[in-house]
């Protein structure tokens, strides 16, 4: 297991970008893909796309971010990439339905964004688990999926 305790910089840093580019020609850049919620962690066990088992253990005042370089030397680099977040967009029928939908989402502690009259819910688990909690809104037409 490879212990990773430092962020050396970001992929976009000029000096590191050159080194990464060189390593990539030798297929020596490994990627760790993380969900948004896992990016908040300071300590976790993960596997790179090339199968290296890593133990990430960062200081408490250091945070993971997209493009963070956790390892870089002449032989290899290991980079963190954030998996694109999934959202469920909901369209309320009217103002009354919007109030109820907003209350419901808050009551379930969902993380949301407001997008031009739509309520976007961050999917931090299986989409069906969220849809199941919205059945009564879909059934009586108080809300519908933006892509439905």
């Amino acid at each position: 297991m490879l212990m990773l305790t430092t962020i050396h910089g970001l992929m976009t840093d000029d000096a590191l970008h050159e080194r990464l580019h060189g390593l990539s020609h030798n297929d020596a850049v490994e990627t760790i893909r993380l969900e948004r919620q896992d990016m908040q962690r300071h300590r976790l066990r993960v596997e790179t796309d090339k199968g290296t088992i890593c133990a990430i253990a960062l200081p408490r005042d250091v945070s993971l971010e997209d493009g963070a370089i956790l390892e870089i030397d002449e032989n290899r680099a290991i980079v963190v990439r954030a998996i694109e977040e999934r959202w469920l967009e909901l369209v309320p029928r009217d103002a009354e339905a919007a109030l109820e939908l907003g209350y419901h989402a808050g009551n379930l502690h969902w993380r949301v964004q407001f997008r031009d009259g739509r309520l976007a819910v961050a999917l931090e688990g299986p989409e069906q688990a969220y849809l199941d909690r919205l059945t009564m809104f879909f059934d009586d037409g108080r809300a519908q999926r933006a892509d439905g």
Partner: peptide
């Protein structure tokens, strides 16, 4: 493993 975590794990 080649180095140690700077702080304790929190569970």
């Amino acid at each position: 493993m080649n180095n140690k975590p700077a702080s304790a794990a929190r569970v």
